[in-house]
Design a protein around this nucleic acid. Structure first.
Lengths: 206, 206
DNA sequence: ATTATATGTGAATTACAATTCACATTATGG
DNA sequence: CCATAATGTGAATTGTAATTCACATATAAT
């Protein structure tokens, strides 16, 4: 009569993924134990066999997000081509990630997820910070390699880099998919690339 | 015994502003009629003298946001200096707006505000769209004026422009004010400016 | 001043969400 | 095979939020 029984380990992953999807599609406000349970085919109280509370579920979601986000960085670093190319690749992966899980910006922005939860807020900040560190680090290597203009501040650039994606993601989502985030980023990349690459010789920066 | 009675007109504005602040400080999820009322010094049911429902309050918040956001564009256009300067000014105003009302990105991202409310979602999209149109229009004029590189796509640029602000705002908020968004944008602007300005003479774009 | 309208109050209603608990049932180790 | 732990269920509890309503009182119009 009942649903198949699954090990807590797998269940936890399933619950976390589902929660991420709910947040992505409907926002943090729509995430309830009931919704979560229904989507999986469980009864609300069953969730408590695997998580102590809704808060713990949210913590788990944040962890998942971290894994996915920083995972992308690891991927492009392994590919180890030229550093500007790493950034390009990272951009592409990030776009895909965001389009798959619109939840990413929502987790960061909504505030509902960390209001009254300073720990969680700090954690999310750390994740973003780490991501930016990695990007800045790639940029620095590119500068050492002589491919990226050494006059530019890598930390500033890393934030701008993030900005190549974010608004595109918003627009995509707000427009219900009509705005083509992929195309925007494709167009924005050459602009960024050109602005960032080392100048051949004499070129004033004003 | 009771609070002073105020005309519905003023009350509506007061309620809307308060709602915006609550969202800015605590997220959409924390916005309840009770919180709203308490902040103003009313009783929850009193809100209904001025708004039919919470949804109507949210609609009103969106209107307010539109006014503020597009208001900034109007301001810089009137100042009518050089177009690149207009953008710089707009950037500064936008930063201030976002720092004052962190609600802006939240309204757009949280999803809670428009899930199940396609009308509202469309409206928000229209606001952002219009903002971008204005920015693109400023850019086009700059191109006609010969100050901005005519090879760059103004629509693409307008989105990138938005990206100069957004991540900075996130970081500022996530870090609880420790990350200096103003400084980031100040640094990012010269980068953008240089990348966008018309090239003196021969300069390949790759 | 008197009446009508606009504002504000407090209690009541309804719905829903998080969480707990006693009770099944399946899986697993011995 | 048996005992025990792990999973799942459904009812019950508690809290909170949106909304309505009957009742008060200030404000404005006559």
């Amino acid at each position: 009569m009942s649903i198949e029984r699954i090990s807590t380990q797998t269940r936890r992953e399933q619950i976390t993924e589902t929660a991420l999807n709910v947040i992505a599609n409907q926002g943090v406000g729509s995430l309830s134990m009931a919704v979560l349970a229904r989507r999986i085919g469980l009864v609300p109280s069953a969730i408590y066999r695997h998580f102590d509370s809704k808060d713990k579920v949210l913590d788990s979601v944040v962890d998942l997000l971290q894994k996915k986000l920083l995972g992308n960085v690891a991927i492009v670093r392994k590919e180890g081509t030229d550093h500007l190319n790493q950034l390009k690749r990272l951009l592409a992966l990030h776009v895909r990630l965001i389009l798959e899980h619109q939840a990413l910006p929502r987790l960061i922005f909504s505030g509902d997820i960390y209001y009254g939860q300073p720990e969680r807020r700090k954690k999310i900040f750390k994740i973003v910070e780490k991501y930016l560190h990695e990007v800045a680090s790639i940029i620095r290597e590119g500068q050492r390699q002589g491919r990226i203009n050494p006059d530019l501040d890598p930390d500033m650039l890393s934030v701008v880099f993030l900005g190549l994606i974010q608004p595109a993601a918003i627009l995509w989502h707000l427009s219900d998919g009509k705005f083509d985030a992929g195309k925007q980023v494709e167009k924005a990349w050459p602009f960024f690339h050109d602005a960032v690459k080392a100048r051949k010789q004499t070129e004033t920066l004003t």
